Simulated scan of single mutants.
Amino acid sequence: MEQVRQRKRDIVDSFRGGSEARLQKVEGLEVIMGDASFTGPKSLSVKSSDGSDLSLEAETFFINTGERPLIPDLAGLDDVVSGAHASRILDSTSIQELDDVPKKLIVLGGGYIGLEFGQLFQRLGSKVTIVQRGKQLAPREDAEVADEVRQICEGEGVELLLNGSAISLRADQSGAYPLVLTCAITVDSVTEVRVEGSHILLATGRTPNTDTLGLGKAGVEVDKRGHITVSPTLQTSAPHIYAIGDCHGGPAFTHVSYDDFRIIRANFIDGRKSLLSTTDRIVPYVMYTDPQLGHVGLHEHEARTKYPERTIKTATMPMSYVARALETAETRGLMKAVVDDDSQQILGFTCLGMEGGEIMSIVQVAMIGRLPYTSLQSAIFAHPTLAESLNNLWGFLK
Rank of each mutant, 00 (worst) to 15 (best):
P69S: 11
P69D: 08
L70R: 14
D73M: 12
L74A: 07
G76P: 07
G76S: 10
L77V: 12
D78F: 02
D79F: 02
D79T: 07
D79S: 10
V80Q: 04
V80F: 11
V81Y: 02
V81W: 03
V81R: 13
S82Y: 11
G83R: 06
A84R: 15
R88Y: 07
R88P: 02
R88C: 08
I89L: 09
L90F: 12
L90E: 02
D91T: 09
D91P: 12
S92H: 11
S92F: 08
T93N: 12
T93C: 09
S94E: 07
V101A: 10
P102D: 08
P102I: 12
K104S: 06
L105V: 03
L105R: 01
L105P: 03
I106H: 05
V107E: 04
L108T: 06
L108F: 09
L108C: 05
G110M: 11
I113L: 15
I113S: 10
L115C: 15
L115S: 15
Q119E: 14
L120F: 13
L124D: 08
G125E: 12
G125A: 01
S126Y: 04
K127S: 14
K127C: 01
Q136N: 13
L137N: 01
P139A: 13
D142Q: 08
A143Q: 09
V145W: 10
A146Y: 03
A146G: 13
D147H: 14
D147P: 01
R150N: 00
Q151W: 07
Q151L: 07
Q151S: 14
I152K: 04
I152E: 04
C153M: 15
E154C: 06
E154A: 13
E154Q: 13
G155K: 07
G157N: 04
V158S: 03
V158R: 02
E159H: 12
L162C: 06
S165D: 14
S165A: 14
I167M: 15
I167L: 15
I167F: 05
I167P: 00
S168P: 02
L169S: 01
L169M: 07
D172M: 02
D172H: 11
Q173A: 13
Q173W: 05
P178E: 02
P178F: 03
L179S: 05
L179V: 01
V180M: 03
V180W: 00
